[in-house]
Design a protein around this nucleic acid. Structure first.
Length: 498
DNA sequence: CGTGTTTGACCTGCGC
DNA sequence: GCGCAGGTCAAACACG
């Protein structure tokens, strides 16, 4: 906060100003730093009441409107200054002290106002986020009903649901990224393709059946939409404004000795690959909770720390989810939403600027990778964030909290606080109030159970998964599950691949 | 026998 | 155009 600098011009000497910078935030007016003028202070105290009355009047004016700072100049310049100059030295000192006191008071008021505005802004942003998700869910339901499709196959709690942001375009990157310029298919084209397919439901691409031009055998209809990456990219609703033909991904890093984290879903392994730069094989899984569910995930151990399991989710579930999976879905959905709501340019620029160091699980809890083939948000649950970490995080480019649109990075922000707790406040407070908020969020983030429970609770509040409880039964038909919750029945287990 | 896993081959996108 | 790397397929295999 540099507001106090506004008062430096009237400070009688720089030594004093240095001490004044630590002005009380709690409203007390302690001026120990003015010992230099102890005599005058004691004398001024006698007139404090009258002065305070003036200040109160001034503060009333301030609170009645936004103090833009010009008011300060008005007060400090002009007639006041002339009066000061005509007074005797002692009186002049007193006047200066009064000015200083008044400025401090104004600074405190400005601070409180700024904090209040920040809080309001953050609350509004969070509400907007939730409202968009809910609206998207409603839209999907309406479209389902219109198309005569069985709505139970949809679930609002889905992984990475960029739909609302793509549709509403609230954050259409204003940049001229290379990726945008190289855009082979415009969003309009995507819509046309999808309309041609006879399925105008843009948000249900994952359930699409392969079209004729796909040229693929439709006996594998369950994965037909994924058989051709190109096909999928052209029609996926998860395409991002700044990432044509690309999906958002949410990558979760967690310490686990298990081969795969239990996220409540059921997965079937369909491939394994040794990725370059990592001796640990990367396993590819598909969701098997519903026929044709397009959700996939990759599981890979960190090359640097084998105990860290990196799970990357991609796609939207096309079926209801059990509560456990819903919690995870909510979490990843909001994380992806945060990712998608940002400008890729800012991401890149910030990354390149060094503001965000190269990916390092020890430095951040949530990082974004916009330069990757897929925009990916990495949520690191492997560390216990140190509150000091937030203080150390230098915000040279952002002296003020930056709106999410402008800087979507969840710096030091545990993912799980995003959908439930006031999101932006957590991010901002992480830099400005590095105490309780970080402590709480850190505690939450380090316990997936707590975060999942919070996610589930919030999801129930925002009213999405109506059919979750029943969905378990609807989807029933349990079988061997590679990772699913044991209590979960499973309905769609037959695959046409054989 | 049904289902899931393994694994080599294949496809696709991207950089040079 | 070529090579590389990521991603996917599908036959072979394992398991209950």
């Amino acid at each position: 906060m540099t507001l106090l600098h506004s008062g430096e011009s009237v400070r009688p000497n720089s030594d004093v100003s240095d001490q004044v910078t630590e002005s009380p935030v709690d409203g007390k007016h302690t001026f120990e730093e003015m010992d230099f003028f102890s005599v005058e202070v004691s004398r001024t105290n006698s007139t404090d009441e009258s002065k305070e009355q003036e200040m109160k009047d001034g503060s009333t004016r301030i609170e009645s409107g936004v103090n833009t700072g010009l008011h300060l100049l008005t007060l400090n310049s002009g007639s006041d200054r002339l009066i000061i100059e005509q007074k005797p030295p002692n009186t002049q000192l007193t006047a200066l002290q009064d000015d200083l006191e008044r400025l401090n008071d104004e600074n405190q008021k400005l601070r409180s106002m700024l904090e209040q505005i920040t809080k309001n802004y953050s609350a509004l942003q969070t509400q907007l986020l939730l409202a968009m998700q809910q609206q998207e869910f409603e839209n999907r339901r309406e479209q389902d009903e219109r198309n005569g499709k069985s709505s139970p196959t949809l679930c609002a709690q889905q992984f990475m649901d960029p739909g609302p942001f793509s549709a509403l375009d609230i954050n259409e990157p204003s940049h001229s990224d290379d990726e945008t310029r190289e855009l082979p298919t415009s969003p309009t084209n995507n819509i046309e393709v999808m309309s041609k397919d006879g399925d105008h439901d843009m948000v249900q691409i994952g359930r699409k059946r392969p079209s004729v031009e796909d040229g693929r055998d439709q006996t594998s209809q369950s994965w037909g939409a994924q058989k051709s990456p190109k096909f999928e990219q052209e029609k996926s609703e998860e395409q991002l404004p700044g990432f044509p033909g690309r999906k958002a991904r949410v990558s979760i890093r967690a310490r686990s000795d298990a081969p795969m984290i239990s996220d409540g879903c059921q997965w079937r392994k369909y491939g394994q690959k040794i990725a370059k730069g990592n001796p640990c094989p990367r396993a590819y899984y598909r969701c098997t909770m519903a026929l044709g569910c397009p959700v996939r995930k990759q599981v890979q151990r960190c090359s640097q720390d084998k105990s860290i399991l990196i799970t990357t989710y991609e796609g939207n579930h096309s079926h209801p989810l059990p509560p456990a999976a819903t919690a995870m879905a909510n979490t990843t959905s909001v994380a992806a939403t945060m990712l998608l709501s940002g400008s890729t340019t800012s991401k890149d620029s910030l990354m390149n600027s060094g503001f965000f160091p190269p990916f390092s699980y020890t430095s951040t809890m949530a990082t974004l990778s916009a330069s990757a083939p897929f925009p990916t948000i990495t949520l690191d649950l492997t560390q216990t964030p140190n509150p000091m970490q937030f203080q150390r995080a230098p915000p040279p480019m952002m002296p003020f909290p930056v709106p999410l649109h402008g800087c979507p990075q969840l710096i030091g922000q545990p993912m799980f606080s995003t959908p439930k707790l006031p999101l932006m406040p957590a991010v901002q407070l992480g830099q400005r109030h590095p105490s309780m908020v970080e402590t709480v969020t850190a505690a939450l983030a380090t316990d997936p159970n707590i975060t999942a429970a919070i996610a589930a609770a919030i999801s129930s509040i925002i009213g999405a998964p109506r059919s979750n409880d029943g969905s378990n039964n609807n989807n029933g038909g349990g079988n061997h599950s590679s990772s699913g919750s044991p209590q979960l029945p499973q309905s769609c287990t037959t695959f046409s691949t054989k």
